[in-house]
């Protein structure tokens, strides 16, 4: 057996084990925090209805999440046959939910009860060695309404 194959298999197993653990843990924490922040309402409506005197301020949250080696390999295989790429779907979902949560956390810290005109922006700072999607960056931002 040549060394390259051994390294590849080791990386695959490491990626699978740690990636699964990390993803499960992340989703668990996302769900918990979403419950805790449920009373901070999010809207992508542009006009704030008149609900009494309030201050507004810009709030934002950002996150960079990376995919693991195993999932990237599976996604590469999927690329051959086409179809849904579950590996990337869960990556994007994690990133978007996490960024929204961080935005809500900032809103809560400033005493806001709702966030309006929420926008999500994705980008790519880091690209994998073969220029494939290695990680995704999401910025969520909106206007927080702070009742006076």
């Amino acid at each position: 057996m040549n060394l390259d194959l051994i390294v590849f298999l080791v990386l695959l197993v490491l990626g699978y084990v740690f990636g699964q653990i990390a993803e499960k843990r992340h989703f668990k924490s996302i769900i918990e925090r979403e419950k805790a922040l449920r009373d901070v309402l999010c809207f992508n409506e542009r006009h704030i209805p008149d609900l009494g005197p309030a201050d507004t301020t810009l709030v934002a949250g950002s996150v960079v999440v990376s995919i693991d080696y195993f999932k990237r390999f599976v996604a590469g295989l999927r690329n051959l046959v086409g179809g849904r790429m579950n590996a990337y779907e869960s990556l994007l979902e994690r990133a978007r939910r996490e960024a929204t949560l961080r935005m809500k956390e900032e809103a809560r810290a400033r005493g806001a009860t709702s966030v309006w005109n929420v926008r999500l922006e994705t980008a790519s700072i880091y690209k994998g060695a073969r220029q494939d999607v290695g990680s995704v960056e999401v910025v969520a931002y909106g206007t927080a309404r702070i009742p006076r």
Binding site: G15, S62, V64, V65, I125, A129, G134, S135, E137, V139
Partner: peptide, 25 residues
Amino acid sequence: DIMASFKNIFGGELKGYTELLQESR
């Protein structure tokens, strides 16, 4: 960047880059 490429094997949040994004914002 090197730390991030390690993280690319295990998956998960790239804290360094999150910081970078926040600072730039």
